[in-house]
Design a protein around this nucleic acid. Structure first.
Length: 633
RNA sequence: GCGUCCGUAGCUCAAUUGGAUAGAGCAUCGGUCUUCGGAACCGAGGGUUGCAGGUUCAAGUCCUGCCGGGCGUACCA
């Protein structure tokens, strides 16, 4: 490092040694200092508590021609200051230029733009040094959070009595991605799969097993038989005329067993009361049910720290109800026990007239147990939006109750991470042609099958001699499953999404395959040219960003940490997929226009460094999203 | 009925939570290049953000009212 470095570069490197540079948070600190001075100078009174909110208005610019970051708070402050927005902006700019350190990272802002935007442009030298730091950093320049929290994430949570279907995938995939992202951010994450293993659906299976079970099929394939029984008994219990009209077998059984619904409830109550026969049957069913879902999780590459299902909390339910009644929060109503909350038409029911407990009861007991054993700062529930009212009432009740530890409960952040419904291409909830919900396993199979065809189409062009059967299968599995996961993650989670294999398996656009391809392409450079990446990381002490496309790519690279911050702020993984897509786009533009291996000297060193970082960050980003990568495809 | 979410290009989706000229992909049309992985890159056309008002320096975003839809709404989860 020497004459290649210009300006104050070495100083910056020294200051951030072994660290990383987050330009956005640096910019916010500079703005905060400027605003404090503005207030001290009497231009406009700003309370210290207002500063964080105001500096949050420092964001990435909409268009690179305005610079890299811009602050918009001058416009908001203008009225209070009794001045024109542009004048307030000019006042802020003059203070900004007096803040120590700003000019090392940013070019000095000169004058307000438009109605009063204050634009900052990162100095290329500072950006180059940030890349050098990131290159040597195993965290790729992303600093961990200052204050780590303990966060419980509750996701997937299928009913084990019935086969997993397409409706379970968003919760599973979004929850898993959030767990990985927040853990990388530095939080202490506890994942917990709150299985539905104790509710009415088991009453259905119990009744079905006793009256309608095909013992031979059960012996051979227990989960398939239990699944059949669940679907059949559910039809009988619901007794919807239109369903029965389409199913002669069910209609005939209806005549034989007219009171199925009541009988199912009775079986559920007996289970909950500890009836030996039902409990022993439940214990017999569970291993097969668990095995079934585990197979799917292993294929999805998803695992949990804990799998504490509803049944786990069963011993605590009576005490929860007693506690709430004792505190006067719950009371008897129409034979049931209910918590009435202002603003809701229906109360939160915690015990049915027949004595059985409900999922609200279990959920309350679960919060209490988690507080007692894990002392979390946050509990996140990744559950579809149809349950939003349940969670509002649940959270409100938990806060009123105190869960046996009012101080902790008060501080606990409870969040319902809602997501939309998966629709078919006809705009209706995703179903098979016959109208059944789509089984998750067959969905994964089809995704992998289609991926295999696409991969085979491209193979001939690229591989001398072809790939082994194992290679092909493994690539198809990674690409197919990745496509399905990415489709769920890349969408704003609050909106409904339309399921389309054709769209999610496209090779261009914001898809997993495009991202996976980008990784394979970047990393192919090193393997084909025989360049050791460790050497690149160790020996690159200076990079020089000259071409605008080098600079644009470098900026995307150092913004990786900002994207992760934004994901956490609103629990939205699609902000990470968007950042990955932007990065891949910047890389394509860079790579298409500028030679890397054919470049020489400092230029080659710089470009190799950018390639290495691009590959690592794309790979890390996909890993945090729970999406696999391949070395060739 | 009440509550809640939504309505953005032909299609599928974004839009930094009130910021600058509403952006991508697909599809359509055009261009680049004697492939460092062309599954590439560059560009064009395509919009009254459901409708009508309002709030303000600034509205796809907030408020009011309509139109159209999803979901929830007492003993399933």
């Amino acid at each position: 490092m020497s004459d290649q470095v210009s300006g104050e570069g070495p100083q910056i490197l020294e200051r951030h040694k072994g660290q990383s540079v987050n330009f956005r948070s640096q910019a916010r600190q500079f703005f905060a200092a400027a605003l404090e001075r503005l207030s001290a100078d009497g231009v406009v009174a700003i309370g210290p508590e207002e500063i964080p909110g105001l500096v949050e208005q420092v964001r990435e610019t909409a268009d690179a021609k305005f610079g890299d970051y811009s602050g918009t708070m001058a416009m908001a402050l203008a009225k209070r200051a009794g001045q024109k927005p542009r004048d307030v902006a000019a006042e802020i700019i003059s203070r900004l230029n007096g803040v120590p350190g700003l000019s090392e990272l940013f070019e000095k802002p000169t004058e307000p733009v438009g109605p009063g935007f204050i634009n900052l442009r990162v100095r290329s030298e500072a950006l180059a040094h940030a890349i050098v730091l990131a290159l040597a950093d195993s965290r790729m320049g992303v600093a961990p959070v200052d204050i780590p929290q303990t966060i419980v994430i509750d996701y997937s949570s299928p009913n084990v009595a019935k086969p997993m279907h397409v409706g379970h995938i968003r919760s599973t995939v979004i929850g898993d991605a959030l767990a990985k992202i927040l853990a990388f951010r530095g939080h202490s994450i506890i994942t917990d799969n709150h299985l539905g293993d104790w509710g009415t659906q088991f009453g259905m299976i119990l009744w079905g097993f006793k009256h309608l079970c095909d013992k031979e099929r059960f012996a051979v394939a227990p989960t398939a038989e239990l699944g059949r029984l669940y679907r059949l008994v559910r039809k009988l219990a619901d007794a919807k005329p239109e369903e029965l009209a389409e199913d002669p077998q069910a209609a005939a059984l209806m005549a034989t067993y007219p009171a199925v619904a009541a009988a199912v409830m009775a079986e559920t109550v007996k289970l909950h009361e500890g009836d030996p026969e039902n409990v022993s049957l439940w214990e017999r069913f569970m291993p097969a049910c668990r095995e079934e879902i585990e197979r799917i999780y292993s294929r999805l590459g998803v695992s949990f720290d804990h799998t504490l299902g509803e049944s786990f909390y069963q011993p605590h339910l009576a005490a929860v109800v007693d506690d709430l009644v004792g505190m006067g929060l719950a009371k008897k109503s129409r034979g049931a026990t209910a918590v009435f909350l202002a603003g809701y038409e229906a109360p939160l029911l915690i015990r049915k007239a027949d004595g059985a407990f409900l999922y609200a009861t279990t959920d309350l007991a679960t919060i209490q147990w988690r507080i007692e054993h894990w002392q979390p700062d946050q509990i996140l529930y990744v559950v579809d939006h149809r349950q939003s009212q349940h969670f509002e009432q649940l959270f409100a009740t938990a806060k009123l109750w105190g869960c046996g530890n009012p101080e902790r409960t008060e501080r606990l952040k409870l969040v319902h991470i809602a997501f939309g419904t998966v629709l078919g291409e006809d705009g209706r909830p995703f179903k098979t042609r016959a109208g059944d919900t789509v089984g998750l396993e067959s969905l994964l199979d089809e995704g992998v099958e289609r991926a295999a065809q696409i991969v085979a189409n491209g193979e001939g062009d690229r591989s001398a001699g072809g790939w082994s059967e194992t290679d092909r299968r493994q690539i198809a599995e990674t690409v197919g499953i990745g496509a399905i996961k990415y489709a769920d993650l890349s969408q704003n989670r609050t909106t409904d999404s339309t399921f389309s294999f054709d769209k999610m398996l496209q090779l261009t656009g914001n898809t997993a395959a495009y991202m996976q391809y980008a990784v394979a392409r970047v990393e192919g450079i090193f393997s084909r040219a025989g360049i050791d990446r460790e050497t690149v990381r160790r020996e690159t002490t200076v990079v020089h960003l000259v071409d605008p496309r080098e600079r644009a790519l470098a900026l995307e690279l150092v913004r990786f940490g900002e994207a992760l911050e934004d994901v956490e702020a609103d629990y939205r993984p699609n902000l990470l997929t968007a950042a990955m897509y932007d990065l891949a786009g910047s890389y394509s533009t860079f790579y298409d226009a500028l030679p890397v291996l054919k470049a020489e000297g400092q230029t080659r060193v710089t470009r190799l460094a950018l390639c290495d970082m691009t590959g690592r960050i794309l790979r890390k980003g996909l890993e945090l999203l729970g999406i696999g990568t391949v070395t060739k495809m």
